[in-house]
Design a protein around this nucleic acid. Structure first.
Lengths: 141, 141
DNA sequence: GCCAATTAGTTAGCGCGCAAATCAATAGCG
DNA sequence: CGCTATTGATTTGCGCGCTAACTAATTGGC
């Protein structure tokens, strides 16, 4: 067996991540969401009325990436961005009723995708945890 | 423990992949390469003089994504793109001497990154293989 | 041999993810 | 108090990754 791209973890990870967002695309289309937007919505479903910096910490995404995503979600009526009264530098990002209601509707998406990949749940869990520790270690550099 | 974004495999994978390209950036900077360009170079180091379609198969990247990347690498003098004589639709992508020579110089990059993450090699290998099977399963949909 | 179908590659448009530069508001220190 | 340093958020510029639409070359069926 001669050496292959798939021998490298970085390739495997990159490929899996691309495959994931590709697989999510058709499922999220009916909600008019991209994967990045869906990620932000998930964060807000877990904790509403947060600042952009807090959202950045939770999603592990750059504020510069987040601003346009949040603006687009605002444009779709999913959330509001209001200047904080305590600290006028901050913007409080809060779900609208539409944004809250979407949580129930979008709940099927995850299970739809899981159905299409029949991987042992325990494998999924170790994969998940190993990805997180890797991400942490890479971030520490 | 209340539910978190990191409970989801998709989040873990997405985060790890972003962290990876972020970690590669400073290491590849001195070669004037992005991670995507480095990936294409790796593919060519393994098999030179291939068509764009073949490169697309090996890198698991869309031809539409690949064309501009390959053009940029051509602009940097790393490779040439010549129309195939047998089939004039095809373009043969071939490394230049500069492109070939880069392989030795860039060999350090991988080990540099490995040093910064002290994860059990066996864990890396299972992580790698699980990512590949996940990617395959997601692609089959 | 001809014409429709397929295949190879490109282009345009969109939405990222990030770094760097910028601006406004607040904190902190003398 | 006043001035600097820090913090929160935005903007700009770049390079992706993908879809869809397109062009050009080749294949295949009749």
């Amino acid at each position: 067996m001669k050496p292959q791209l798939s021998d490298n973890l970085c390739f495997a990870l990159y490929t899996a991540s691309n495959a994931l967002t590709r697989a999510y695309r058709p499922l999220l289309e009916r909600f008019d969401l991209t994967y990045g937007q869906y990620l932000v919505m998930q964060a807000l479903w877990l904790e509403d009325k947060v600042s952009l910096t807090e959202l950045s910490r939770q999603t592990r995404l750059d504020p510069g990436s987040l601003t346009p995503v949040v603006k687009r979600l605002e444009g779709k009526g999913m959330l509001t961005r209001t200047v904080s009264s305590e600290d006028e530098r901050r913007k409080v990002i809060a779900l609208t009723e539409t944004g809250q209601a979407l949580q129930q509707q979008a709940a099927v998406v995850k299970s739809e995708l899981e159905q299409k990949t029949d991987i042992d749940p325990q494998v999924i869990d170790t994969l998940r945890r190993h990805c997180l520790t890797l991400a942490d270690q890479l971030a520490k550099v």
